[in-house]
Design a binder for these strands. Structure first.
Lengths: 179, 179
DNA sequence: ACCTGAACACCGTTCAAGT
DNA sequence: ACCTGAACACCGTTCAAGT
């Protein structure tokens, strides 16, 4: 068989595509390899193990969030980015402590808080990061439960209710006016 | 071989014991069965699948939190309960949407908010639940990363810093005085 | 440099059969 | 009612060997 030649970026592309299709529980190294037309063992040339591949995926998901002005807009952009991919929140949560993708989150929020005159931008960013991760995990969990009938509500009503939750959280955690 | 006779409670006991020993990634149905001296397939008489066993574990973890007075004390008690078992936060997060153990969390916080004169106890409880879950996931992730050297800090300093994070979150999300 | 092929030590779950 | 035993269709990871 022909050698296929891939790099980390291509592998992450394939992994994200598969993630959206089949979800995190079914995302295996063997499936990623299959999507690339390669043997499972070939992945280990590019990546140390599954966890570090997921870290790279998390990194990409967070970086897909566009830059925005101010704490609230930044937080909404990050929320959108995590919700844009199936199980995106869970993937990011699981790698947050290793200060990869999550550090990008924290860093953006820290800058936004600093720009709005926070007295402790680092602490404020930590708290909002933790809320954001818990919130998005909850949203995706609920949406999937609603989709399979395990939670009695329409996806739309879950989306609406959780947007209101997020807004309420931001009202409390982000400064209202920065003058 | 002798029949072993178990009930759901005993299985949850064994699962929690194993969870503390080996962590969620290594917690398999086969290991739980092994700890009980039983074949893996025997578990399926008591439990529909692994996910529902984990839901029962999550339920128990949350119920282990003692009742407390007021929003802040309730939140700290829940935080302690999730942190009391290895990967406790992750277990609870993964079953939160199915309104099992997590509903107990939400319910307690809702009552506490109502008792402090909140205008929307349901929303306030949702926001605090989401922060609590994100926060505790983050703490356990960081502590483990610190333990294996993947994050450069002592477990104590992580514990201290995250306690301050939680207090800051509560300052913003819980009412300061209830008169 | 990058991939194949084969192997190792695992998984969750089902189901007939035992007691 | 509750468990065993065997099977099915999978896993992540390692490593020699190929090109």
């Amino acid at each position: 068989m022909r050698a296929q030649r891939h790099d980390l970026d291509g592998i992450v592309d394939a992994a994200i595509g598969l993630l959206d299709e089949i979800g995190l529980p079914d995302l295996s190294m063997r499936r990623v390899a299959g999507a690339l037309g390669v043997q499972p063992s070939a992945l280990y040339w590019h990546v140390e193990n599954k966890q570090s591949l997921l870290a790279a995926v998390a990194d990409r998901i967070v970086r897909e969030a566009p830059a925005a002005d101010g704490v609230a807009a930044t937080a909404w952009a990050l929320r959108d980015a995590l919700l844009a991919h199936r199980d995106g929140a869970e993937v990011v949560v699981s790698t947050v402590a290793l200060s990869l993708g999550s550090d990008a989150m924290h860093g953006r929020l820290r800058e936004a808080y600093a720009g709005e005159g926070s007295e402790d931008p680092d602490r404020d960013a930590s708290v909002l990061t933790q809320f954001l991760l818990g919130h998005t995990s909850f949203v995706q969990q609920r949406m999937q439960a609603a989709a399979i009938g395990a939670y009695d509500a329409t996806p739309e009503s879950v989306a609406d209710a959780t947007r209101a939750d997020f807004q309420a959280g931001l009202d409390a955690l982000a400064p209202r006016h920065s003058s």
